[in-house]
């Protein structure tokens, strides 16, 4: 009799524990997925800011048509790549394409900043100052969101791989999540110095 009760109690505890682990895994997975959604939200925010930036700068940078067009084109490509990546979030090829276009956009913006340095009136314009602050804030947010995503993935993976959670994870189909890395081949290459 007592043995039966003890067995039942142990089984009940085990079941409760398993449910707890399962739920925690779900919570961790949702957390990093949400973090991934945040990256898209912030990318969207950056894309929305750029037309205003170009519109304000146009009046001052009449002779820098080339720079502005490049920013607009880079934005266009980034918007398209983002649209595709959002429709199928698990496609890694689309993801790397998105990261490539975003990098292009960052480079175009960097060029724009460099050009804007030469136009004191543009830099003094209040709208421009506000837009620059918004833009740098958004870029911070993108990197924070990416970082939060990676932290979330790390927590999830660590929890998932530990014993005995790994038993629940393999039965429940919790697969390993991958970290977002810098997928810009240029950034990894060593800098070439040219003295000519």
């Amino acid at each position: 009799m007592i043995n039966t009760i003890i067995t039942l109690a142990v089984m009940a505890l085990l079941l409760l524990y398993t449910i707890g682990v399962y739920n925690h895994l779900v919570a961790l997975r949702n957390r990093y997925r949400n973090a991934f959604a945040q990256i898209h939200v912030q990318l969207q925010r950056r894309h929305d800011l750029i037309p205003n930036l170009v519109e304000t700068a146009k009046r001052y940078l009449q002779h820098e048509e080339d720079t502005l067009t490049r920013v607009i084109q880079a934005r266009q490509q980034a918007v398209q790549a983002q649209g595709k990546a959002q429709q199928s979030p698990d496609n890694s090829a689309l993801l790397s394409q998105l990261s490539q276009t975003e990098n292009n956009l960052s480079q175009a913006l960097m060029r724009f900043h460099a050009v804007a340095e030469n136009y004191p009136e543009l830099k003094a314009n209040t709208t421009m100052v506000e837009l620059m602050e918004e833009l740098s804030s958004t870029e911070n947010r993108i990197s924070f969101a990416r970082q939060a995503f990676n932290d979330g993935v790390m927590q999830y993976n660590t929890y998932r791989e530990q014993f005995p959670q790994n038993l629940v994870a393999s039965v429940g189909g919790f697969t390993e999540a991958t970290l977002l890395t810098l997928e810009n081949p240029d950034a990894k290459q060593a800098v070439k110095v040219n003295f000519n």
Partner: peptide
């Protein structure tokens, strides 16, 4: 004031970083 706007931005950035 710009300092307030910056403060709001910084807070929102941290909100992204910390959920």
């Amino acid at each position: 004031p710009p300092s307030h706007k910056q403060f709001i931005n910084v807070v929102e950035e941290m909100s992204v970083a910390s959920h």
